[in-house]
Design a protein around this nucleic acid. Structure first.
Lengths: 200, 200, 200, 200
DNA sequence: TATTAAGCGAGACGGTACGTCACGTCTTAGG
DNA sequence: CCTAAGACGTGACGTACCGTCTCGCTTAATA
């Protein structure tokens, strides 16, 4: 009468969700924000653009803000940097990867939208906080790896330096409203890697 | 500045505007965003809280985004740093002034709200761009003054370094959703001033 | 009747329909409308309450309106009055049977719901019309039988009088929103039987 | 600063409501239900048809059901019958007035819709009950006037007879789904006036 | 002093998006 | 072919907010 609840591991009875919907919706959000700005990202417009119904969206993301964060993560998610044996090289990899991502069209408004959304209510703030922590972790990881390896000074203030690494590209993007460029990356790599270099 | 005075300063006919309204409205915006988040900052709520009518607000700021930017500017406006004869000292003044401002309650959500608003439409983007440029100018000023004075290396990439100075505190605030602290200021002052110090 | 049996009675291949479903669904409709009003009668709620799936309902009644009509008919169907040899007695039987039915809880809202449903679209109107005709037929039958028998005046306007018989109890129920009572039945029996009595 | 609260008698401060909206909305409801049935009467369709915004509708009628009742009342409101000195004449006036009203196109579906709406929730039931009582009052009035005047038997069951007067035309309309006709009116007038005639 | 232009609070207005809910269909797995 | 479960598209619901407008009134500068 009720049916076995969990068959294999993750699927219950009933029609399974369509993966197509997830992809189409996130793509639609990015496309709309890129083409027409954040104001054009209405739930109805997203639904139409994705060829999907509004309830199908709300089943997955309970509010518009959650959807925005998911869209941002789909484009600007955390990346894992392999151990290159050298902090400076790893730092460059992180920043140049980010540079490429941030220069993609629409990412500026997407990030700004997510930051704005986080200011709306505490529930959104914590969702955004989790996202933010995921993205920041990559920088903390290479710093701690460098300390363990020995090419980063052990008394480095990891928290502060991680902020100094992550901040400039994002700020250039959403604070100065211009795309970050290679010179900015070079400057950050230079300043930071010299400052935290062990032995100096 | 925002708002449209009909005559320059010499008042024309008709009832003059009440200054009380300007102050009350900006205060109401800040109070609401501080207490309840950006979502609580509706034009009606602001009007009620300020004891003011909606038309009185719209006479001064044509859109909600303009009002938000004005509120941000009223709390986080540009500051002018006196010539202290020393770049490092001036840099510290800039950052510690900002630190104090950014640690005020509500400023995080106010800044995030302004950034989010800027993603909405191009008209808002340019208004925000002007505000952003005003705020950034202080950092560029002390850098250029340092170059002229001779204690900053003349080949310094002013644009990139200015971003590296301004970014960390704002990013800590709106990107990491935590208040910036003294350690972050110290780290920035150290890294930047050492890196741009003339002669080395 | 409503619902689409694929074969007449000789069963074809495949799993046969469960009678349990038919009963459970109609009972659920009546229970819901009685307890919580027509607005609570959603197809999902009916399915849950009946312990049945939605497709199982839709296989039997193609629309919600059809289900409502079926539920009404299950409670307020036509009744056949035996020949008692006396119009007045038969009239009393009809009205007192109806009185009992109409005083059952939930029947008011069920009838009102069916009437409202009939206003929605022409397809529903005709389904309701068929139901209505079935229910009205009992009154016409006793009138015509009375004329044939000779205790009802042959020049009686059967149509109009049938309406005057059927109307008051239903109208009391759905028009005045109160349960019909014995006094109303008595009044109708008196007025009508005296007016159509042959010879006078 | 606050303004005098009540100026003449009924108008407070602020922009007054536009009468145009009230009329246009009720007309739109009737037009839609007449042309396309009750299912076409969506709040959006009404708003568009009336050239009015949805909030303007909801300011006046808090739910769709209230709007329906108001629309019904605008077409089928209570009428006051002048004292004609004769119960039978007054009864005929009542019924022929109603006949004319009920034969107007769309009134059938409007009435059925209102009855259906009343089944939805208790709040709507009481709103409908008030409307129903207003409409019924005219019949009770002529009965009581007849008793006072002396041409209606003083032992008449006013409640029951009022139901028998009001019911047939409405039932013909919404129960039998056909327009009431002159023969039905004549039959009701005859039966009722003869039955309640004093002395006789 | 009277006029006039613009300010003011109050609140209704058109428009648009929100997030929810219900209908009726379809897709899965199982009986 | 039936069953339960539940996701799906469609579309209406009622609410909230934005920015405008219409009231009646108040406040100065001007005529």
């Amino acid at each position: 009468m009720v049916g076995k609840r969990v068959r294999d591991e993750g699927r219950g009875p009933g029609r399974p969700r369509e993966e197509r919907v997830d992809r189409a919706v996130l793509d639609a959000v990015v496309a709309l924000v890129t083409e027409s700005g954040l104001a054009a990202v209405t739930m109805d417009a997203v639904a139409v653009r994705a060829g999907v119904s509004k309830p199908a969206i709300y089943r997955r993301w309970p509010t518009k803000q959650d959807l925005l964060i998911a869209a941002a993560e789909s484009r600007v998610g955390p990346l894992s940097v392999p151990d290159l044996g050298d902090f400076r090289a790893e730092l460059r990899v992180v920043l140049e990867s980010r540079l490429e991502v941030y220069r993609a069209p629409g990412v500026d408004r997407l990030m700004a939208g997510v930051i704005g959304a986080a200011a709306e209510a505490d529930a959104v703030r914590s969702a955004y906080g989790a996202y933010s922590a995921r993205v920041m972790s990559e920088t903390r990881n290479i710093l701690e790896r460098g300390i363990a390896r020995g090419d980063v000074r052990p008394d480095t203030d990891v928290r502060a330096v991680a902020t100094m690494v992550a901040a400039p590209l994002v700020f250039r993007l959403v604070g100065e409203m211009e795309p970050p460029d290679q010179r900015l990356v070079d400057t950050v790599v230079d300043l930071v890697s010299r400052a935290v270099a062990a032995r100096g």
